[in-house]
Measured scan of single mutants.
Amino acid sequence: PEDEKKAKEALKRANGDEDKAKEILRKLGVDPDRAEELLRRLR
């Protein structure tokens, strides 16, 4: 869904750096736990 698209985009923008991607997602208003879960799934 929408969050998943955001997560993929964030990872791309962060050049695969998960911590940076998490930060980006947090700024986009995605719940930190949700962000973590999404990134884990994309790994």
Score class of each variant (00 low, 15 high):
P1R: 13
P1E: 15
P1G: 13
P1N: 13
P1F: 15
E2A: 11
E2M: 10
D3Y: 08
D3K: 03
D3F: 09
D3A: 08
E4K: 08
E4F: 15
E4A: 09
K5T: 10
K5N: 11
K5L: 13
K6G: 04
K6F: 11
A7L: 08
A7V: 12
A7F: 05
K8H: 09
K8D: 06
K8M: 13
K8R: 14
E9G: 07
E9V: 07
E9Y: 05
A10S: 05
A10I: 06
L11S: 02
L11R: 02
L11W: 07
L11N: 02
L11A: 02
L11D: 01
K12T: 10
K12M: 11
K12H: 12
K12Q: 12
R13K: 14
R13M: 15
R13S: 14
R13G: 07
A14P: 00
A14W: 03
A14D: 01
N15H: 13
N15P: 01
G16F: 09
G16H: 05
G16D: 04
G16V: 01
G16P: 01
D17S: 07
D17T: 02
D17H: 07
E18Y: 15
E18G: 07
E18A: 10
E18R: 11
D19I: 13
D19R: 13
D19K: 14
K20G: 07
K20F: 10
A21K: 01
A21C: 03
K22P: 00
K22H: 06
K22A: 08
E23H: 06
E23Y: 02
E23F: 01
E23M: 05
E23I: 08
I24L: 09
I24Q: 04
I24N: 03
L25T: 00
L25F: 01
L25K: 00
L25V: 00
R26I: 15
R26D: 07
R26F: 06
K27E: 14
K27V: 10
K27C: 09
L28W: 11
L28D: 08
L28S: 08
L28H: 06
G29P: 00
G29V: 01
G29N: 05
G29Q: 03
V30F: 15
D31E: 11
P32R: 09
P32G: 11
P32M: 10
P32N: 10
D33F: 10
R34E: 09
R34Q: 10
R34P: 02
R34S: 09
A35F: 09
A35C: 07
A35Q: 02
E36M: 05
E36G: 04
E37Q: 07
L38M: 10
L38G: 01
L38S: 03
L38P: 00
L39R: 00
L39C: 03
R40H: 13
R40W: 03
R41M: 11
L42N: 03
L42Q: 04
L42P: 02
R43W: 03
R43M: 14
R43V: 15
R43D: 10
R43A: 13
